[in-house]
Amino acid sequence: MHVHTLSAATPAVRFAGVTRHFGAVRAVDGVDLAIAPGEFFAMLGPSGSGKTTCLRLIAGFEQPDAGHIEIFGEAVEGLPPYRRPVNTVFQDYALFPHLSVGDNVAYGLKVRGIGRAERDRLAREALALVKLSGMEARRPAQLSGGQRQRVALARALVVRPKVLLLDEPLGALDLKLREEMQSELKSLQRALGLSFVFVTHDQSEALSMADRVAVFNEGRIVQVGPPEDVYERPATRFVAGFVGSANVLGAAQAAALGGEEVPSSLRPEKIILLGHGLAEPAEAARLEARVVEVSYQGAVRRVALLTPAGLSLTALVPASAPGAMVGGTVQLAIPRGALQPMEGER
């Protein structure tokens, strides 16, 4: 866990009470956050939740209406984008159409007054890093989506940012390419030891890549933590519903199933359907339920259940397990600890 060993005293990016309105809309509403150096940080949320505006506030394309932003301990309010030690990979890549791939990558070096030979060498090095050696002379229009994305990455990395910002960088790629780029981005980030701040609306992307995830809703951060924490212990109904799917139980319902008397979440895959030779966990609440619907989803089956007390639950069971019959009655076990009280709903 190198994240904690790096100087935690000065965060790579720090927000204190940052607010940004557009007219009457509070796009970002009092956000506090600290991103550690070398951390892969994901900002996750639905569109309009304020995550992209936060990224633009770090880059300097937006200025906060209130609050304070620091990058490596230096206040950056009022600094234009070109005076900030951060670089961005844009959602549409924003490659310069009139420049070759090589000149695109060398652009940041050119405006810093670095000579032709030196910047060509550095651009080649950066293109090699993203596995695009030999593409220098091409035009952006001649590249595939995945290649453009790599050029955008090389162009941002070649100027040695202290923080790399990525705005939905995988959104425009097809599924296979996206999975490939996910692991590549992750290993690139480890190798360079840079802070990556990554905006996405795709929860699986955030969970699989990030060291920590901040979940945004309506301009605020509703929960921040390592992916396991956010997934296992969602703090609010919103997080429980947005990050994966969850059964949300009221305080009384949670207490009835052996949990605390606090609104709680219950992940569908934690519910065990008994019988068929499955071992019952040692400490678990047991109850009976009627099977309302079963849908086959490849690796798992999704089973909609209704308890006699009128509680609707969804369970995910291995597809290889013998199927529950619609209309039949099953015995459920809910292991102790599967019910997670939602701290934000106390």
Binding site: A59, V86, T88, V111
Partner: peptide, 21 residues
């Protein structure tokens, strides 16, 4: 695309360099 201008400034070019280049 407005992101071209943002990308240019992001990479270190000021307003005049962005206009010219």
């Amino acid at each position: 695309s407005p992101s071209l201008i943002e990308a240019s400034m992001d990479l270190g070019a000021d307003a005049f360099q962005t206009f010219r280049l």
